[in-house]
Write a protein that binds this DNA or RNA. Structure first.
Length: 277
DNA sequence: ACGAGAACCTGTTTGC
DNA sequence: TGCAAACAGGTTCTCG
């Protein structure tokens, strides 16, 4: 489900509902997702006030007034939904957590495939925690530029497609936006990362930023089931140039190519063989 | 050391 | 129509 724009959309959707609220009650409906919930999770969160929400890579960081940060990674199918006070918390087949806030609203987390996970980390040790320690640069941050990307790619023979999915180089990209950014930059997904030149790296940075910003503006991409915290679907999928468009005509002006689908490291890549080199 | 592939799960779509 | 295979927004481990 969620790459950077979708996680950002969820964070923004949750913020007005959660910030300033205390968690009155937190119920776990099972002991684990991908990993076990942290020890005493409910006890550590109950009674705490939520002071801030932020996104880092594909993680949602919920800052609590007890000095802890409640981290959530949504995996493929994780989903947070807000149920305002009075509204019935509608059925979710795979609901694994439910929090009740002081204002009576409820927050539920559902995740059919359970590839998501949560953890609690001390706020003053967040950057050094095991989830964040190895993460690469934030693609929408100030210190992401062509030189940084080129340094991350240096010496790597892995295809540029795979290098961009590596969260330790750039943090937050996933399959959709890597395909879209490579198309916009005119770079073939199979090209060795270490052989992408300086000018191409600079262009790639520009296109990565542009596609992520446009997707956030559109509320993310809803392929099958993505929705923001308030249940709204995103609509960036209507602006895809290549993703899930195998066999269709290339959208680039003057290009007569057709979009091709290949598999790299078990994941689908979509690209135009005639204008991505 | 590095990269490809499998594994982790469940649900939905595709193809015979 | 029905069933099985393929496929899905992510990460992490193993094997060669």
């Amino acid at each position: 489900m969620p790459e950077l724009p979708e996680v950002e959309t969820i964070c923004r959707g949750l913020t007005p509902h959660l910030v300033g609220q205390s968690v009155r009650r937190l119920v776990l409906y099972r002991a684990d997702l991908r990993f076990a919930f942290p020890p005493h999770m409910a006890a550590q969160i109950e009674g705490a006030k939520i002071i801030r929400l932020a996104r880092r890579a594909k993680f949602i960081c919920t800052y609590l007034d007890n000095g802890q940060v409640w981290l959530t990674h949504l995996g493929m199918t994780g989903r947070y939904t807000i149920w305002p006070k009075g509204a019935a918390a509608g059925a979710e087949r795979h609901r694994h957590l439910e929090a009740t806030l002081d204002n009576g609203a409820r927050l539920s987390y559902s995740d059919p495939r359970r590839f998501g996970y949560m953890d609690l980390v001390a706020a003053d040790a967040l950057a050094e925690c095991r989830h964040f320690k190895h993460l690469g640069v934030e693609p929408l941050g100030r210190d992401f530029n062509g030189a940084v990307l080129r340094a991350g790619f240096a010496g790597r023979k892995t295809p540029v497609k795979n290098a961009l999915l590596n969260q330790n180089i750039v943090a937050g990209l996933g399959n959709i936006y890597v395909c879209e950014a490579l198309f916009r930059a005119g770079i073939a997904p199979k090209r060795a990362a270490g052989r992408v030149g300086a000018a191409k790296c600079t262009a790639l940075v520009r296109h990565i930023r542009a596609v992520l910003k446009a997707a956030i503006q559109a509320g993310g991409s809803s392929l099958r089931d993505f929705a923001g915290a308030e249940g709204h679907a995103g609509y960036f999928q209507h602006q895809f140039d290549v993703y899930h468009r195998a066999g269709e005509a290339c959208t680039k002006r003057g290009c007569r190519g057709r979009i091709k689908r290949i598999v790299q490291s078990g994941r689908a890549s979509f690209f135009c063989p005639s204008c991505q080199k």
